[in-house]
Design a protein around this nucleic acid. Structure first.
Length: 615
RNA sequence: GCGCCCGUAGCUCAGCUGGAUAGAGCGCUGCCCUCCGAAGGCAGAGGUCAGGGGUUCGAAUCCCUUCGGGCGCGCCA
C-alpha cells in the first residue's frame, strides 16, 4: 500500500560541510575580538582586572561613522563596572595593549569609552585574499559545532497542489537550513505530512467521486464540502486502472483507506514537484499517520506520549472555561483530559483527548516533537504560516514538557504575502475549485525572483510581492540588481581576457601573484571592507535564524560594486581594466573576483542563481 | 475579552539581539554619457524612530502603559 515514506533519509542535497580546519582570519571581526579578549586577559594577569571577569558581552563591530576607524569595541564600557574602574581609564589600558598588535595601525579612545581601531591596510587585503581563495566556501564556519538542528517547513496538507500561502515559509525554511548547514550545524530538513486528519478523509471521498467518474459513471456537480479541483481527476483514473470497479460495491470503511492512501501519495508527488520548481527538496517526510499506528505490535507514539506526560504528572481531568470574545452557541462545559500547558507559559491548559476519546489536534504534534527529540534533535525550528501564530506557545510548552526542558524550539512565523501587479492586488486566473498555486507564480516570474523576494523582508513582517516589479531590469528590482552585479563581474573577466589574452582561466589563481597593495582608492578599499564583513553577516544571520540579512547584505555589496564600476566612467584610471598597466589590472581583477565569489556564495545560500550574463 | 506580530523620511523598508551624528530604494530637486563601462552613478532636501513613563554610562532596540493597524482564538483543522 502506498503511503508517504516515513523518515526516508538521503544525504543532504545542497550543502555539507567538509572536514577541514578554518583559517583563524576567516572572520576578521572574530579575529580582532579574540585579540581584544587577549588584551583584557593580559590586564587580568597584570592584576588590573579581577580574575574570571565576564567577557561575554564584549563585542567588536564596524562603526556606523567611518571616521571612527575600522572597528570599535565596547570592552572597556562592559568591563568597567565589574572591574571597579572608570570606562575611559580602562579603555586607555586596553588600548595600550592593542596598539602593539601587528594588525593594528591606530587606536583611539572615544566617547564614553569606545576603543576605535584602525587596521593596517594589509589586514583588509588579507581578508580579500581569504575571500578569493575560499571562493564558495568563504564565510563557512563551525559555530554550530555539528549540533543537530531539525528544520520543519512547508508541511502543507496533502490535499492538493501547493498554493501561494505556503510559498514564503517554504523558501524561508529552505534558506535557513542552508544557512545553518553553512555555519556548521547538522541540519535535517523535514516535512510533516498531515495524512491523518479529517481533511484527508474528505480528500479520499473527493477522489472516490473522481474514481467513479473515471469508470464512466455520472457524478454531477461536486457536492459542497468536497474538493472540486481537477487535480483529483488523475487520482480517479489511477484508481480505476489499479482496481477496476471493485471498490464500487464496497462500503466506505473498506474503500476509504485504500483511496486515501492513493490520493495522499499522489498529492504528495504533486507537492514535491511544486517544491522542486522552487529548488526545495526535504530529506525527511514524516507521516502523521505513523504516530497513530501501533509500533511493533506495541502502543502508538501518541499513546506512548500520553503515558509519558501522565508519568510526569502533566495530565489531569478538568473542564476549560468557555472561549471569550466569540459567540459559542453550542458550547457546554465538559470534563476532558488536559495537558498542563500553563506550567510552561501557555495561556490555558490544552485538551489531549476529545470527549470521544480520540486524540485532539495538538496531541500528534506533541508526539511528533517528542519523536524529534528522541531522534537526537535538541534544537528544533518550526516554520509556520501567519495563521498559526497563536500556536507558538503551546508548541513551546509541548517541547519543554516532552524534553524535560532539555530541547529548544524556535517557531518562525512567516507573515502574509500580498501579491500585487503594478501596485494593484494581482488578479490571477483561478480554475474552478483551485487556489492560486505556487506553480503559477513560479511559471510567471521564475524561481529566482520568487525566492529572493520572499527573503528580502523580515519573516515577521507582511510582504508585498509585485509580479511586475520583479521582472523589471532596474535598481528598483533587487533580484535583478544583485544578479546583475554577479554577471557584471564575470563580464569584466571576459573583457580583461581580450586585453590580456594570457590571463588564467581561474581569476582566483591570480591571488598569489597579485600585488593587492595596488588597491588604494577609498572606493576600492570600501568594497574590500564590505567583502570582509560577509562572514560576520552569515554568522549573525545563522544565529538569529534570519536569512533576510544575507539578502540585504548582497544588495549592499552589489550597490558598492555598481558604484565603483560607474566611477570608472568619469575617472578612467579607476576602471578595472587598465590597458597599459597589467599589474594594477590584476589586483583589481582579484577584487572583482572577491565580489563575484561573495555574491555567488550568498545567492547560493538563498537558493538563487548567480548568472554569468543577464539576458 | 485574551494572545502574538507590526508602527522608523511623502511611499516601501533596513537598522548587525543595548552603542557614538538613525540608513537604503522609490518619489522630488540639481548634476554626470555626441553607442567604445548610463539596465548605471553623484549630490541635495526630507525624521519628535506612534505617544508617555521606566531600566543604565548609553534605548529605535529591553520593561510597563496608552493609541493605531494586522493575524489568531474552539474537543474545528
Amino acid at each position: 500500500m502506498t503511503r508517504p515514506p516515513n523518515c526516508v533519509r538521503r544525504p543532504p542535497r545542497r550543502y555539507r560541510r567538509p572536514n577541514s580546519c578554518f583559517m583563524a582570519a576567516e572572520n576578521i571581526f572574530a579575529e580582532i575580538l579574540d585579540r581584544v579578549r587577549r588584551a583584557s586577559d593580559a590586564l587580568v594577569t597584570a592584576g588590573d582586572l579581577p580574575a574570571g571577569i565576564d567577557q561575554s558581552r564584549v563585542t567588536v563591530e564596524p562603526p556606523r561613522d567611518p571616521t571612527h576607524g575600522d572597528m570599535a569595541t565596547n570592552a572597556a564600557m562592559v568591563l568597567a563596572k565589574d572591574a571597579g574602574k572608570k570606562p575611559r581609564e580602562l579603555a586607555a589600558a586596553i588600548a595600550a595593549k592593542l596598539g602593539a598588535d601587528p594588525l593594528v595601525d591606530k587606536v583611539e579612545v572615544a566617547g564614553p569609552g569606545f576603543i576605535n581601531l584602525t587596521l593596517k591596510p594589509v589586514a583588509w587585503l588579507d581578508a580579500l585574499r581569504t575571500a578569493v581563495r575560499r571562493g564558495g566556501r568563504y564565510g563557512e564556519s563551525d559555530i554550530g559545532r555539528n549540533a543537530p538542528v531539525n528544520v520543519e517547513y512547508v508541511s502543507a496538507n496533502p490535499t492538493g497542489p501547493m498554493h501561494i500561502g505556503h510559498c514564503r515559509g517554504a523558501v524561508f525554511g529552505d534558506a535557513l537550513a542552508n544557512l545553518l548547514a553553512f555555519t556548521g550545524f547538522e541540519v535535517a530538513r523535514e516535512y510533516y505530512v498531515n495524512d491523518a486528519g479529517a481533511q484527508v478523509d474528505v480528500l479520499a471521498r473527493s477522489a472516490f467521486l473522481r474514481y467513479r467518474e473515471a469508470l464512466g459513471q455520472e457524478i454531477g456537480d461536486i457536492p459542497e464540502g468536497l474538493y472540486p479541483g481537477d487535480y483529483l481527476k488523475p487520482v480517479g483514473v489511477a484508481l480505476a486502472a489499479q482496481y477496476g470497479d471493485t471498490l464500487c460495491g464496497q462500503p466506505e470503511p473498506l474503500w476509504l483507506p485504500v483511496v486515501r492512501a492513493k490520493a495522499v501519495a499522489m498529492m504528495m508527488a504533486l507537492i514535491r514537484e511544486d517544491l522542486a520548481a522552487l529548488g526545495i527538496d526535504h530529506e525527511v517526510f514524516f507521516s502523521e499517520r505513523s504516530l497513530h499506528e501501533p509500533r511493533n505490535g506495541g502502543p502508538s507514539r501518541i499513546a506512548e506520549t500520553i503515558a509519558f506526560l501522565e508519568s510526569k504528572g502533566l495530565l489531569y481531568r478538568g473542564t476549560l472555561p468557555p472561549p471569550k470574545g466569540k459567540v459559542m452557541e453550542d458550547w457546554e462545559p465538559r470534563e476532558l483530559l488536559l495537558f498542563r500547558a500553563t506550567e510552561f507559559g501557555d495561556d490555558v491548559d490544552r485538551p489531549v483527548l476529545k470527549s470521544d476519546g480520540s486524540p485532539a489536534y495538538i496531541t500528534p504534534d506533541i508526539a511528533y516533537h517528542r519523536d524529534k527529540f528522541e531522534r537526537g534533535f535538541a534544537n528544533m525550528i518550526d516554520v509556520l504560516g501567519a495563521d498559526h501564530a497563536g500556536y507558538v506557545k503551546r508548541l513551546n510548552a509541548a517541547v519543554q514538557a516532552v524534553s524535560d526542558g532539555k530541547a529548544t524550539l524556535d517557531v518562525k512565523v512567516c507573515q502574509l504575502v500580498r501579491f500585487l501587479r503594478e501596485g494593484q492586488p494581482a488578479k490571477m486566473s483561478k480554475r474552478a475549485g483551485e487556489l492560486v498555486t505556487v506553480r503559477q507564480v513560479v511559471d510567471e516570474v521564475g524561481s529566482d525572483a520568487v525566492r529572493f523576494m520572499m527573503l528580502f523582508r523580515k519573516n515577521d513582517a507582511v510582504l508585498d510581492f509585485d509580479l511586475a516589479k520583479v521582472i523589471e531590469q532596474s535598481r528598483d528590482n533587487p533580484v535583478f540588481y544583485v544578479q546583475y552585479g554577479h554577471a557584471r563581474g564575470k563580464s569584466v573577466f571576459r573583457n580583461a581576457r581580450t586585453v590580456f589574452p594570457d590571463l588564467p582561466e581561474e581569476i582566483a589563481s591570480l591571488t598569489d601573484v597579485a600585488d593587492l597593495g595596488q588597491l588604494t582608492d577609498a572606493a576600492e578599499l570600501g568594497l574590500v571592507r564590505r567583502i570582509a564583513l560577509y562572514p560576520r553577516v552569515v554568522e549573525s544571520a545563522s544565529l538569529a535564524h534570519e536569512p533576510h540579512r544575507i539578502a540585504f547584505y548582497l544588495f549592499d555589496l552589489a550597490s558598492d560594486f555598481h558604484a565603483l564600476w560607474t566611477l570608472g566612467n568619469a575617472t578612467p584610471h579607476l576602471r578595472f581594466i587598465i590597458q597599459d598597466d597589467r599589474q594594477r589590472t590584476v589586483a583589481r581583477l582579484v577584487l572583482v573576483q572577491g565580489v563575484v565569489a561573495v555574491l555567488a556564495s550568498g545567492l547560493a545560500l538563498l537558493g538563487v542563481g548567480a548568472p554569468d550574463e543577464m539576458r
